[in-house]
Amino acid sequence: MPLILISGYPSSGKTYRSQQLITYFQDKINASTEPKVKRLKVHHIDDQSLGINRDVYAAARTEKDARATFSSAIKRHLNRDTIVVADGMNYIKGFRYQLYCEAKAVQTPSCVVHVGVPPEKCKELNIAALGAGTGGYEPDLLENLVFRYEEPNGMTRWDSPLFTLPFDDPAPPCEAVWEAMVGSDGKSKVVRPNAATVLKPASEQNYLYELDKTTSDVVNAITTWLQDHAGEGGGQIVVPEAEEAIVLPTMPPSLSQLQRLRRQFIGLNRQHTLDKGRVRELFVEYLNDAFSK
């Protein structure tokens, strides 16, 4: 069943919105006469339930470990009869991409619910929480997390469908989320995993070498094309052995931007082995998603 990622600034009310969604889903399940709906369960995952303290976000190492714990909990509960509500900041687009791949690998849809609260309002809510002793972040940490937040973009595959919830809306678009993820009869859409998103044991020989070399070849193809076309943007580059062509943005990417995207892609796929024959295609897809923003 679907993975619903909650994303937003710290102290934006993500858990409150998650509970609204969960209450709605549970009421729909209880009121349904469809067997496929009646057997559904809703599982809520957040930092508190996993024993993750807010202080972990103050250091890169502890934050990385916390994200690994969060991701592992999601993978444990993703199955055909469970709706997983992942209630966290989920503020790094690469992490949302990783979770999108996890959902696709088990053939279940996913979506992002963006709790769109202005930073100043979050700071106000955070001060109130600290004063009441009910939570909150240290002011410097909150400022840092707000600065680093990468807002979801519904034009990318991993952030789509995207439901944005303004602060002054009384409730999330519960019905729209239910229809998109579960459907009126409980028959959620079947997601077909492609070879690029199916996780496999890291057993192929020279996998990391192939990952590095293939992505480097694609970047070199782009830089060569840009040199041959006097740095023009907006063109298409046909990459051998890839189904999609690379569609360049109007403002051509710099070499440093291409290398940064390459490093991000390698970092996301270092821990699990993709089919070596599909690395090129998935990297092209990743670049096109990044260029379309």
Rank of each mutant, 00 (worst) to 15 (best):
V42D: 06
H43N: 12
H43M: 09
I45K: 02
I45P: 01
I45A: 07
D46C: 15
D47E: 13
D47P: 02
S49R: 10
S49G: 11
S49V: 12
L50M: 08
L50Q: 12
G51R: 04
G51W: 04
G51C: 02
G51A: 03
I52N: 01
N53T: 15
R54W: 05
R54M: 07
D55A: 12
D55T: 13
D55H: 05
D55P: 00
D55E: 11
V56L: 04
V56K: 02
Y57T: 06
A60F: 11
E63V: 03
E63S: 01
K64H: 13
K64A: 14
D65V: 12
A66W: 01
A66C: 05
A66Y: 01
A68M: 10
T69Q: 14
F70S: 07
F70R: 03
S71K: 09
S72R: 13
S72C: 02
A73Q: 02
A73V: 00
H77W: 15
L78A: 08
N79A: 09
N79T: 11
R80G: 01
D81F: 07
D81Q: 08
T82G: 06
T82F: 04
V85C: 10
A86C: 06
A86T: 04
A86S: 13
A86D: 07
D87L: 08
M89F: 07
M89E: 05
M89P: 06
Y91T: 05
Y91K: 05
I92P: 02
K93A: 14
K93S: 15
G94Y: 04
G94H: 10
Y97P: 01
Q98W: 13
Y100R: 08
Y100W: 15
Y100G: 08
Y100M: 09
Y100K: 08
C101G: 12
E102G: 02
E102I: 06
A103W: 00
K104M: 10
K104T: 10
A105T: 04
A105H: 09
V106L: 03
V106Y: 08
Q107D: 03
Q107V: 00
V113F: 07
V113Q: 11
V115M: 11
V115N: 09
G116Q: 14
V117W: 00
P118D: 05
C122Y: 00
C122A: 00
C122S: 04
